[in-house]
Nucleic acid binder design. Sequence first.
DNA 1: CGGTGTTAATTGACTCGTCAATCAATAAAA
DNA 2: TTTTATTGATTGACGAGTCAATTAACACCG
Lengths: 190, 190
Amino acid sequence: MPRIGMEPLRRDALVQATISEIAATGAIDITVARIAKRAGMSSALAHHYFGSKDQMLLAAMRHVLSAFGQEARKALAVADTPVTRLEAIVGACFAPLNFQSDVVAAWLNFYVQAQRDDETRRLLHIYHARLRSNLIHALRPLTNRPESLAEGIGALIDGLYVRQALRKEGLTSAASTRIVLDHIEQGLRR
Amino acid sequence: MPRIGMEPLRRDALVQATISEIAATGAIDITVARIAKRAGMSSALAHHYFGSKDQMLLAAMRHVLSAFGQEARKALAVADTPVTRLEAIVGACFAPLNFQSDVVAAWLNFYVQAQRDDETRRLLHIYHARLRSNLIHALRPLTNRPESLAEGIGALIDGLYVRQALRKEGLTSAASTRIVLDHIEQGLRR
DNA sequence: CGGTGTTAATTGACTCGTCAATCAATAAAA
DNA sequence: TTTTATTGATTGACGAGTCAATTAACACCG
């Protein structure tokens, strides 16, 4: 009994189910059938809307990336000093919405996917470049070596994500934010 | 024409081929047939010696972990001050042997595998606990909050690994070591 | 309003490929 | 002749992607 106008609802459901399924079963055993079942539809329908499994994974990635981007822009919009800009960026990385365990697990999958899929690698590269650029821009007035500091900050954030993805009981958003901000503060103090 | 005493040679070849294959094709498309071909034998022989694909992946992981452990112990043996101990630990993490691009790519696979395989998770947990314990031990004489500093150092190392796994042209061993040691130094300065 | 053709939604059944794992057979060493 | 090494062929499962068929909403027309 087809109701019309289902496409956007189905797409959203599949994107969310993809993220949940990655978290539930791990990046390797992801199948279209499992995702579709979790989203309450047949795998044929999933293929109908997305065309392929890779496109489904990419849609999930874009969703996560875009959620992060919105959060970051929102926070940066009201930040008017270098320090508050840094706090805004780091805060967005660990905002509860972006630091949920299923979203974090999905990140790990993106890294793996990037090893073979060009588009995934491209998106990840864009994300990295933006984060780096935002950090350097905020750091420039505060230090004479913003590039190398940004490198360390980026790696630290990635590392906290990875560790979060593995532990059942991970760090809180607040604790992770604290670690990164401390690192920045100490990096500036010299 | 079977020559005798092949088992250890075949096992070593398969372990090395597993690591190379992960680096070459990414964690998702690993197949026993590809690994066996790279190691110069049939997939049937690979199964004969390891029993299953999972056991092959675990053997590769144990190999990487054990190489790291040896390197770390060797370096720690000649370190007699807290600071040199820290340098030894970090140095082992980024020793060229452990920081080669194929080995680093394999690490990413371990994290993914740990999402579903208990033994992989167990090994990773042991590694994490050892690193943490070594760091805390070396940090204790130098700071009054060694635990939280160790947490940040561990995450930073993981993050540098992950980033290394993605880039064709990554950081050098020396550059990565520098970043971590700077982080430690600054963390101690307060 | 009632009929009729068009379009969107939906799925079960199917194809085709791949892959892990097994097995029987062969060949050489001991 | 017993053991070790080795592989081609095979099995059995599973998964991505396709397709034809079904159902309902919609649009147009007389």
